[in-house]
Amino acid sequence: MIPVTFSYHKAESVGDAVARIAGNPEAKLLAGGHSLVPAMKLRLAAPGELIDITGLDELKAITVGESIQIGALATYNDILHHHELIAHLPIFGAAIPHVGDRQVRARGTFGGCIAHADPAADLTAVLLALGGHVNATGPAGERSIPVEEYFVDLWTTALAPDEMLTSVVIPLPGDGARMTYVKHRHPASGYAVVGIAVVVDDNGPRVTITGATSKPEHLAGAEDAISAGINDASIDLAVARATEGVHINGDLYADEEYRTHLVGQMVKKALQQIVS
């Protein structure tokens, strides 16, 4: 319950925060704290220094223009309550109410979720389905990482240890875009046992998965099955091909066979929502 001793620094700017993590391999950024602090209490994480970035108001903004930019420190609730964003990207309205609980959604940040890349997080799959890029700042300056290259493995992203995620940019979906997210929650933790995000627009269908894989991934078999249209027959085919070429993880709660079945059922539920 009591974390290992550390030193605490409240960051004054993005530059200050980046200089701190670049200067000390033991240092970690603290955003909403709802992944990091529980891990520290269990002593699964023991950073020697915490750089608190929650005071950096410039990272809280959400702007809707030719694309949609979400600052790293926008909380789940900031996104959910941004009517213009939800009007363009209703998938956030479908997913966020299923993240944790009211206290988690009030503190947890989009940047923290995307940087942490928990294999059972929800918005990772949502971001992969929407596409776009992640902006990061490191000692060498800023760079932008395409979402398709961003998620690497369990809790591992393309961010370098001395880089900070500053914002995420998502393209505006075309007219008539349809999207949804469905989730089978772990009954104790509330995290995704299987989460499926679907986005259908002019760029073709995207079907992505979280919870059952090491990182969010495209379900290419399901995407291919519905490429010519979504109807009862193509939904059945998408279910049959859902886990094609994808490694499904099992654990004590849900083994590989059960989870594989669940993936098909969640794909079916999501696609039925898309056509209804």
């Binding site: 319950m1 605490y8 704290g33 709802h34 602090v37 529980p38 209490k41 915490l50 009211r102 206290q103 009030a106 503190r107």
Partner: peptide, 9 residues
């Protein structure tokens, strides 16, 4: 903001 006081320093 309703907050879990075990999850902030």
């Amino acid at each position: 903001v309703s907050t879990k006081s075990c999850t902030m320093f």
